[in-house]
Design a protein around this nucleic acid. Structure first.
Length: 633
RNA sequence: GACUUGGUAGCUCAGCUGGAUAGAGCAUCAGCCUUCUAAGCUGAGGGUCAUUGGUUCGAAUCCAAUCCAGGUCACCA
């Protein structure tokens, strides 16, 4: 139990004893004392004034006296200022804490609790390489999985690969047309990038073709269209002439977008892609073969990237396998009357009672939609692993989709359906605006990793502190620092918030950054190499703590809380901030007081323990973020 | 339009289950390396916590309204 909780409990006991009534933790607040006042923890008296009908100072005095007398090992003194009771914790408490835990590299982590949780993250499409947004997803997913482990859960990291669908066909079409049989081997281009290049090529063709159509539409030439598309176009054009008079620019833009969408769907390249998707579903051998071949290239490329950034999975699901199961479950749900069928044969679920709409779960032609396979996969996860809860790391643009999925699972009576959690994270924007793959304004993951590692190399060489490293050691160090900087930069922000990616800032190695924390760790290790902590230690005789020494221990005491909070909030930034603050606190102590040349032998021992425990916590915390810490840098 | 998330220093972000004079980092300015790694430390300047009203002993934090920005509302994934 944390010291804050202990104090809270003691105050409850004290108040109940003093006033003969029951109190709970909601009756008062406990905070860390502000630095400008004397004390460690502060109890706010005001909330007690009404029920006790005494002045804040009177209540505080009684309470302070009682606590001091009852818990002399914990409290050394108190003062009351303007209704705030400031309690000082004894130095013995802090030194005991240090002595007990300094060598425990698992400090802050919990015992196994027997619960199983699955974290699904990454979820790439196999038509293009990973970009900055995927990195945020991967780092978050991996870190949350580790944080759960630290809280005693068994964790299964999973990934659903979206390996099927029209987007894949687009790359395949363009490759057939333009590649002349080019392969990653023949071109030397990484597989996922090669496939991505043809996806871009397809989009280029699509844009050119649809522009021709749009130009004709603007001249009122609709001879390329027929059927429902023609009808809709007619309506849109009529609506547009009306709006032109009103001059509502937003609506006009919306209508133009709709026209653009119709034009895109009427191009010949799009028709080819759609045909290929049909062929794929029918299992046409040459299409399947091409699909396997190109997906294979992408997987090879992904493997390289995943390995570099340290993402791994215990279980990989493929959409091409799961979508059929989804359809089967929809059929079952239909029998159970969870779903209903419309006259045209499409299958729906009615969520109006839950404040949502009716939602399609299967098309009238019997093919599955996005959510169909998610339903199947959700059940498969439970049956395969008997998990207690399931976390989905997915962007916040899919909040609605996830809400629907959760409701459907509940209505289907899936076990633990209420334990489906959506770790919804915000988009990564650039200082120049949003990333759009169609417009080529994405930051490629591989490029970014290269750049970060190159920068860390440059900095390291300039500082020249590790000239004796072997080439292998150097490479490892550059990776550790470059990736550390990048991961820390993306994880230090609250996941649910949209964040801005500033290239210059992300590459910074000073201040609130990964390398800052790594550096602090390396510096401690350097001391410990020269001044190892001896094994035969005496209990400390003099336990008077200096201000900066105590600050470090106080920070260390909060590590278990940080791990717990990060887990309950699904928020690695809690750890990032904690680890940064700990490093900062230690650095202040470090510059002010010498460890090797401490005033007395006792002080030296205490400070060495302090250093050991700080290094352990920094290492452990950074590992929860997926960041390694070097012994030297 | 409906629903939803956000608006805190020049920039990027903490703080939001109400508490004392609103905090970091970057950037700017001024200091600190013959002693444990200066990727560090110390200090200064920088704020109408979007706006208005309410609740209360006390509001950046809770409530309401307004303004601004993002997202969703597809037989796309």
């Amino acid at each position: 139990m944390s010291i804050a909780n202990t104090i809270q409990k003691n105050v409850i006991t004290a108040l109940s004893a003093l006033h003969q009534q029951n109190f709970t933790e909601k009756d008062f607040q406990i905070n860390q004392t502000k630095p400008e006042f004397e004390g460690d923890y502060t109890i706010v008296m005001f909330s007690l004034v009404k029920s006790l009908r005494q002045s804040p100072d009177a209540i505080g005095n009684q309470l302070g006296e009682y606590l001091l007398n009852t818990y002399p090992a914990l409290f050394s003194k108190f003062n009351i200022i303007k209704g705030f009771l400031n309690l000082s914790v004894t130095d013995t408490f802090w030194t005991d804490l240090l002595q007990k835990n300094y060598g425990n590299s698992c400090f802050g982590k919990k015992e196994k609790n027997g619960k199983k949780v699955m974290v699904e993250y990454s979820s790439p499409n196999t038509n293009k390489p990973l970009h900055l947004g995927h990195l945020r997803n991967n780092f978050l997913g991996w870190s949350v999985a580790e944080i759960y482990k630290a809280n005693g859960y068994d964790v299964i990291k999973s990934c659903i690969v979206n390996d099927r669908g029209i987007h894949i066909c687009k790359s395949m079409i363009a490759w057939q047309k333009y590649a002349n049989g080019a392969t990653p081997q023949s071109t030397g281009i990484k597989g996922d990038h090669l496939v991505g290049d043809y996806y871009v090529k397809f989009e280029g063709d699509l844009k050119a073709q649809s522009q021709i159509l749009i130009n004709k539409i603007n001249l009122a030439d609709l001879c390329d269209f027929s059927g429902p598309a023609l009808e809709k176009l007619d309506k849109l054009l009529i609506a547009l002439t009306k709006l032109d008079e009103i001059k509502d620019e937003e609506k006009i833009a919306k209508l133009h977008d709709e026209i653009k969408e119709i034009a895109r769907n009427n191009t010949s390249v799009m028709a080819e892609a759609k045909q290929m998707l049909l062929d794929w579903e029918e299992g046409k051998p040459e299409v399947i073969e091409l699909w396997k071949k190109m997906n294979g290239w992408v997987y090879e490329g992904f493997d390289v990237t995943y390995k570099r950034i340290g993402s791994d999975f215990d279980k990989i699901y493929y959409e091409s396998n799961t979508y059929l199961l989804g359809k089967y479950i929809v059929q079952q749900g239909l029998d159970k009357k969870v779903f209903f069928k419309k006259e045209d044969g499409s299958i729906w679920i009615d969520l109006t009672a839950d404040g949502l709409d009716e939602k399609l779960v299967q098309r009238k032609d019997g093919t599955s939609v996005y959510i169909t396979q998610d339903i199947g996969l959700a059940l498969q996860k439970y049956e395969e692993y008997k998990i207690d809860s399931s976390i989905y790391v997915i962007g916040n643009e899919q909040n609605y989709h996830m809400k629907v999925l959760q409701l459907i699972c509940q209505k289907l009576g899936m076990p633990n359906a209420e334990n489906i959690a959506h770790l919804s994270y915000g988009m990564v924007e650039l200082t120049t605006g949003k990333m759009k793959s169609r417009e080529g304004t994405v930051v490629d993951a591989d490029d970014l990793v290269d750049e970060m590692i190159a920068t860390s190399q440059k900095h390291t060489e300039e500082l020249g502190k590790v000239k004796d490293f072997t080439p292998e050691e150097l490479k490892d160090l550059y990776d550790t620092i470059g990736l550390g900087a990048m991961k820390f930069y993306l994880l230090r922000v609250d996941p649910k918030k949209t964040m801005v990616f500033n290239p210059e800032e992300s590459i910074d190695f000073h201040g609130f950054t990964g390398p800052f924390v790594q550096y602090t760790h390396a510096r401690i290790k350097s001391i410990l190499r020269k001044e190892p902590l001896s094994n035969n230690q005496q209990p400390l005789a003099n336990s008077n703590l200096l201000k900066l020494e105590k600050e470090v221990i106080v920070m260390l005491e909060q590590y278990p809380d940080a791990i717990e909070q990060a887990c309950s909030e699904h928020n690695p930034s809690v750890i990032a901030m904690y680890v940064f603050n700990l490093a900062k606190t230690f650095n202040s102590f470090y510059t002010e007081h010498s460890i090797a040349n401490a005033e007395t032998a006792d002080k030296k021992q205490l400070r060495l323990q302090l250093a050991v425990m700080t290094a352990n916590a920094l290492k452990s915390g950074m590992e929860l973020l997926g960041i390694r810490v070097p012994e030297r840098m």
